[in-house]
């Protein structure tokens, strides 16, 4: 009795191991060499997987089969180095995408506020240029003010640690907006430059850099 149970268990285990192995991504021929380049970097072929292979959609559901694949949708959009691997701001500026401002009115235009804030950072990184323009193209004032940002100069203390924990910028950045590992997309202004000029004047070089 114990013996037969043992064999049933053994056979089922082997079957499941075989299935698991078949399910695992097939390693490249180069993976056999332990000293290859970019051992931990996700290769472009593994980015933007279709819903049927992304590990959260149920491939057995009929709906999953009907969903658009991100690779197809992102083909005409400008690429980026992280996140969805799409530069959403560039895509918006170049009118490659025209997301609606109002759910019902496709012609409604967003109210854009073109105010650039220079945040002088304490560490050795370049200062942060915060552009209201790119943010108001997507968001409403009430999404950021008064929570998580008090609309008052000097009233918002933040650190990269709190951002990593999902406070302030980290509410969106790192989740749906470009991740915090893209340091230089925020930390753009060379130190010292911003301290000599006013926030308004400093906005100009930052803008020219964007374009």
């Amino acid at each position: 009795m114990v013996r037969s149970k043992f064999f049933v268990s053994l056979i089922s285990s082997l079957g499941i191991i075989a299935l698991s192995v078949a399910w695992m991504p097939v390693p490249d021929a180069a993976a056999a060499d332990p000293n290859t380049f970019n051992r931990l970097m996700k290769p472009p072929s593994k980015r933007n997987p279709p819903p049927t292979q992304d590990g959260i959609h149920d491939p057995g559901s009929i709906g999953t089969q009907g969903l658009q694949t991100p690779r197809e949708a992102f083909k005409p959009l400008p690429p980026a180095q992280s996140g969805n691997y799409v530069d959403w701001v560039k895509a918006f500026d170049a009118k490659k995408i025209q997301p609606r401002f109002d759910s019902k009115d496709p012609k409604a235009k967003p109210v854009i506020m073109d105010l650039t804030i220079v945040r002088q950072v304490k560490g050795s990184m370049p200062d942060v240029i915060f552009p209201h323009k790119q943010h108001t193209e997507w968001l409403d004032c009430s999404n950021c003010h008064p929570v998580p940002f008090v609309p008052q100069k000097g009233a918002n203390q933040m650190s990269m640690a709190s951002i990593m924990l999902g406070e302030s910028c980290g509410v969106c950045h790192g989740k749906v907006a470009f991740p915090v590992a893209d340091c230089r997309r925020c930390h753009t202004e060379t130190k010292g430059k911003a301290t000599k000029t006013s926030a308004k004047a400093a906005a100009k070089p930052a803008k020219s850099k964007k374009k």
């Binding site: 949708a73 997301p99 609606r100 193209e137 997507w138 749906v176």
Partner: peptide, 12 residues
């Protein structure tokens, strides 16, 4: 999010 942000702004 990616599918919806192509069609709608976050604020919607």
């Amino acid at each position: 999010h990616w599918f919806h942000r192509i069609r709608f702004q976050c604020r919607v």
